[in-house]
Amino acid sequence: MSKLTRDWRPLLFIVLGAGAVLVSHFFLHTCTDHGHFMETAAGTLVPMRCHWSERAFQGVGALVAFAGLAMYVFPDAARGLSFAVAGAGLLMILIPMWLVPTCDMPGMVCNLSFKPGAYLTGGITALSGLGGTLRLRRLDVMGGERSAV
């Protein structure tokens, strides 16, 4: 099997993870990007919770890229890492929805830009991780070459 066909899944995970970090930073806007801050009792301005939702999302995106990099180094762990990427994609969806929710006001920029983009990116990541897991399971059942990622 050629190297290009063996290495497409780790490359996909690296691109999805790095893309999630870059897209959320440059294209999916939060309230902080538009100058909306919360004022504390002491009078200081702090970012709204959607800012922290974006940071958590970027951390999970970096984890996906790291899992893709680990698939190159440890090809025998590809099925487990693909399953972990599927879980990370689900986590990308849960972060703005429930774990670190965005603003309560539906008209805020985080609910119009960041939240739908996070759902889309997380869904694509979860489906690609699940697809990789099922594909590698089928190769194992058929007696296929385990190193053929």
Results as ranks from 00 to 15, higher is better:
residue 17 G to M: 07
residue 96 P to L: 06
residue 143 G to M: 03
residue 111 N to Q: 11
residue 62 A to C: 07
residue 128 S to V: 13
residue 107 G to K: 09
residue 87 G to A: 13
residue 39 E to Y: 11
residue 21 V to P: 01
residue 104 D to F: 12
residue 135 R to D: 08
residue 142 M to Y: 08
residue 100 V to R: 07
residue 121 T to L: 08
residue 34 H to F: 12
residue 4 L to E: 09
residue 27 F to G: 04
residue 96 P to W: 08
residue 134 L to Y: 09
residue 142 M to W: 10
residue 56 A to T: 06
residue 140 D to F: 05
residue 19 G to H: 04
residue 93 I to P: 04
residue 67 A to N: 04
residue 124 I to V: 14
residue 112 L to A: 09
residue 133 T to N: 09
residue 98 W to T: 09
residue 3 K to M: 14
residue 18 A to S: 13
residue 28 L to C: 12
residue 18 A to D: 14
residue 21 V to R: 10
residue 142 M to D: 15
residue 82 S to G: 12
residue 74 F to L: 03
residue 38 M to Y: 13
residue 41 A to P: 01
residue 119 Y to M: 12
residue 74 F to T: 07
residue 86 A to V: 00
residue 142 M to C: 10
residue 103 C to N: 04
residue 95 I to S: 12
residue 91 L to V: 15
residue 97 M to L: 09
residue 68 G to Y: 03
residue 17 G to I: 08
residue 14 I to S: 07
residue 54 E to K: 11
residue 31 C to E: 08
residue 105 M to S: 05
residue 6 R to N: 13
residue 1 M to F: 13
residue 144 G to Q: 13
residue 4 L to S: 14
residue 53 S to F: 05
residue 18 A to C: 15
residue 49 R to T: 11
residue 122 G to V: 04
residue 9 R to M: 15
residue 126 A to F: 05
residue 133 T to I: 00
residue 127 L to S: 12
residue 97 M to N: 11
residue 72 Y to V: 15
residue 127 L to V: 13
residue 55 R to N: 01
residue 127 L to F: 12
